[in-house]
């Protein structure tokens, strides 16, 4: 059965939910690769995450190569 309700659209016709989802992915991905210094893992591991810098080390080479300040 067809429903009459529509997905909300932006003025240009692109679904708002898609824009919001992509904007969140953009922000989170950019932070993870470009700027995290232990912040994300500190939610689970506390201050130790700032010492280990797990994500920083994982993204280290790309961080330099893509032009982000690393250390």
């Amino acid at each position: 059965m067809s429903q009459s309700r529509q997905i909300n659209l932006s003025k240009s016709g692109v679904p708002v939910i898609a824009i919001v989802a992509l904007a969140i992915i953009f922000a989170v991905g950019l932070f993870v690769v470009g700027f995290d210094q232990g912040h994300i893992f500190s939610i689970a591991f506390g201050e130790q995450a700032f010492e280990d810098q797990f994500i920083h080390e994982l993204t280290h080479d790309m961080r330099h190569a893509a032009g982000f300040p690393c250390h």
Binding site: V14, I19, L22, A23, I25, F26, A27, V28, G29, L30, V32, V33, G34, E57, L58, T59, H60, D61, M62, R63, A65, A66
Partner: peptide, 19 residues
């Protein structure tokens, strides 16, 4: 990590590009 970070960053910038 270069490859994994490439995929994460690529998906992130790609999301902006898609918008």
């Amino acid at each position: 990590g270069q490859l994994l970070a490439g995929v994460i960053l690529g998906t992130s910038i790609g999301a902006l590009f898609g918008i």
